[in-house]
Design a protein around this nucleic acid. Structure first.
Lengths: 264, 264
DNA sequence: CCGAGTTATTGTCGAAGTGACAATAAGTCA
DNA sequence: TGACTTATTGTCACTTCGACAATAACTCGG
């Protein structure tokens, strides 16, 4: 249990990587069904080398010497989506012995929420000239693709132990949404309560009673009614709300704002 | 964001260590006051080399090549207390750039509960002959000592960022206790409800109503009444209860049974 | 043996929260 | 204008929870 010299220590110490589970809400359904309700999607990277060459995996990479864990996770996010996270939080450190066939790799995994319509964090204004932006390039990259987070056929076929990681991330997302005010991070600065409800329903994967849900949100801190209404719909125009809590999209290093409980 | 060759990667990758915050419940008060109520204590290690030589720190060490993260945490625990954990769970991975003055170190921190009266996991029967057991040696080791977990003077003076880590571990312990059935892990196989209440009060650091607390525990799963009573006290003998949930003291690798919510 | 003292245990009551669901409001569309 | 749809409010029974009264059971001092 004592340190040896530096070279020996480095020879012993397993490789350290940071991966990120990225969630976004999308409207389209995979198949022909016109669903109308948004569902959870996540981007994956196709591996271009062994092991697991050709299979889909979570975005990730080694931790740079001058990179915070959170920085590395944000870099994963940006490389995969071109977006800034609207929420980013550490999930778990996975350190099993046989996660990767050849080397021993310890992965510190983060999970993130993004808004795809978010223009913050996107590269500078699209240069009228011609060079495609990072996001435009990503859309054409055959090794980056989005999948429904509940598509078991895809998730279970992921490389390494990434299926387990995604299941755990989904579970954490559910718990976080059930309690707190995280749902609005999928939405823009102004939103209707029905939109928040759709987020809840997509994440929890069940229907909620609109009346009770509204009452629930009244109690929640940070959600404030504006005096604006969303016009242009086919029916009674709903009131717009805004979130008036901590505006910081990305929590600071070692934010430790999460809470853990045991329901078992 | 691409891997370089192996040697370059190892040169880049920060050092990886595992530390453990260990909690136990003890009766004695630090000063002369005869408190009667048990309080939270934790063991610390005095550093014998730079940096922070002479200061107290959390038990920890580098991750062995054939060691699971959980194994490494259990090894910390055993080296520090000679006991097996009655609960062991990952806390957080700390990866700030300046946690250690010289090297860059990423620490994966666990937190644990132990029962000091627990004979499980203690070294084999004390050899009548003479060689002191590991636990006996630890009691005399001037570089291992127990401190009250709420002694700010001690905690704030810890080496590295360990003060922050202990604060976070305390907060997680509180949340875990508030919700779930973790308190009994401080206790033996048979316990009274008053003892469980004492655990709650020590962890949450506030008094609870006995009647409401009892009702609360009735709803909790796993806690079963026995038909035995604890005799020998000075007053009405309380009924003994037992925990009938998962008996595994240490959760399996990647247990992921924790839950996270956001109260902010 | 009795009654005071202390802890253990159960019961009660009002406030607050929650799910189911009825009722009303305010738009669009034919 | 009226049917239709979504938005929003209200109601009711049920549960949960904190505060606290009331009862039970034991020890101990006389």
């Amino acid at each position: 249990m004592e340190f040896a010299n530096v070279s020996e220590r480095q020879a012993m110490s397993p490789e350290l990587a940071v991966s990120t589970v990225i969630f976004a809400l999308r409207d389209e359904a995979d198949d022909g069904e016109a669903v109308g309700r948004p569902t959870l999607w996540l981007p994956l990277i196709r591996r271009t080398r062994e092991p697991y060459r050709g299979q889909w995996a979570l975005p990730g990479g080694p931790l740079g010497a001058r990179q915070t864990l959170q920085d590395a996770a944000a870099a994963n996010l940006r490389a995969t989506t071109g977006l800034a996270p609207s929420h980013l939080e550490q999930l778990y450190a996975f350190g099993g012995l046989d996660r990767s066939p050849a080397h021993r790799v310890v992965s510190i995994v983060y999970w993130a929420l993004v808004r795809e319509d978010d223009e913050q964090g996107t590269e500078a204004a699209p240069d009228a000239g011609g060079a495609p932006t990072h996001r435009e390039r990503l859309l054409k990259d055959p090794n980056v693709a989005w999948f429904p987070a509940r598509d078991d056929a895809v998730i279970e076929a992921l490389a390494f132990d990434h299926a387990e990681i995604v299941r755990y991330a989904l579970w954490r997302l559910r718990n976080k949404v059930e309690y707190g005010s995280i749902a609005h991070r999928f939405l823009g600065p102004r939103f209707t309560l029905a939109q928040v409800q759709e987020v809840y329903e997509a994440v929890l994967d069940r229907r909620l009673d609109a009346a009770n849900f509204r009452r629930h949100l009244r109690g929640a801190p940070g959600i404030e009614a504006t005096d604006e209404y969303l016009h242009g719909g086919k029916h009674r125009p709903p009131r717009l709300y805004r979130y008036a809590g901590d505006t910081a999209a990305v929590p600071q290093e070692n934010t430790n704002t999460e809470e853990q409980r045991d329901r078992s």
